[in-house]
Design a protein around this nucleic acid. Structure first.
Lengths: 164, 164
DNA sequence: AATATATGTCAATACTGCTGACATATTTTT
DNA sequence: AAAAATATGTCAGCAGTATTGACATATATT
């Protein structure tokens, strides 16, 4: 029966298969964010704080506007998160050198510590999954996920990600 | 330089590569949920409603407890969402036949319509990504995502997903 | 000098999630 | 039959994340 279905559409585009692909993404995301959530709760932080920490950590000196573009939330939503991180001493701002209207964002030492603590957990999880799946599967994983990113910024994101 | 790094760790376990894997998941999830969000907003529903619709649609007659297990939220959180869906005529409950304490959940015709409307968008997105990436990449995508699902229910989820 | 841009902030609102407590119906165990 | 466990529902209260719209300030560009 599975054979029949596969023959009917060898490109994995049957509704069942697509549903599987959707659900796998849901489950993986659900569990992937669990570890960090627990650590963040100690500081009364949530996922939004984590995302800010992550992207500031990965892009020291990023401007508020660029961070908003990555997170795709409103200025007001980020504002609260950023204020909390700054007040807690995890992030610091610095007036832009080229454009003094900008506020460039950096992690403090404390911020780096927290970010590292969280990312270590996630990296361990990904490393484990990568190891089990093998290099070829990893390439496929990246290819499909990249395809799920909306144009027009897919190209920019891939460039940014691979620049490192 | 990339050559050097790759040689140093042929298993793609360098921190940079792990970060890429993490960020791809973030971006893909971010964009993947955008389409549905727009439709749901028309009904004053959010992602939680969508998830309930999705899993009730895929598992007609599912019990509240089983749905809670999938979504990993509390009874009270689901309660609000479920009440709204029932009140809006998208979901109906039915006393369990084997165990009459249970409330089995089903989509109404209206619920099926909404669910189909949303899932069509997501399936189109996944189908597009699958097509671009190719069958081999799809296998890798699934393998890695499956590896990101926490034990002990990874096996159960894979079984449930592939049973269809 | 006028306009545009980058950022910040205020108020109001809504969705999603949590904990803890308590209630009811039903099933299982003793 | 009585006691215990289970499945579900509900109440009150709280917190995190996100929204829109309006307005303010500093700086840069035209």
């Amino acid at each position: 029966m599975s054979d029949l279905k596969s023959l009917a559409n060898p490109l994995f585009l049957r509704e069942d298969e697509l549903r599987q692909g959707i659900e796998l993404l849901f489950y993986a995301y659900r569990d992937f964010t669990r570890g960090p959530d627990e650590i963040l709760a100690r500081y009364n932080f949530g996922r939004a704080h984590h995302r800010a920490l992550h992207f500031i950590g990965g892009n020291p000196g990023i401007t508020v506007a660029d961070l908003l573009g990555i997170l795709r939330i409103t200025k007001q939503s980020l504002s609260r998160v950023l204020s909390a991180l700054i007040e807690g001493g995890f992030v610091r701002q610095q007036q832009g050198t080229r454009d003094r209207r900008q506020r460039q964002l950096f992690l403090t030492e404390q911020g780096k510590n927290l970010e590292r603590q969280i990312s270590t957990i996630q990296q361990a999880k990904v490393a484990q999954a990568y190891r089990e799946a093998g290099a070829e599967a990893v390439a496929g994983y990246r290819k499909v996920l990249a395809g799920l990113i909306d144009e027009p910024d897919r190209a920019a994101i891939l460039r940014a990600i691979q620049r490192r």
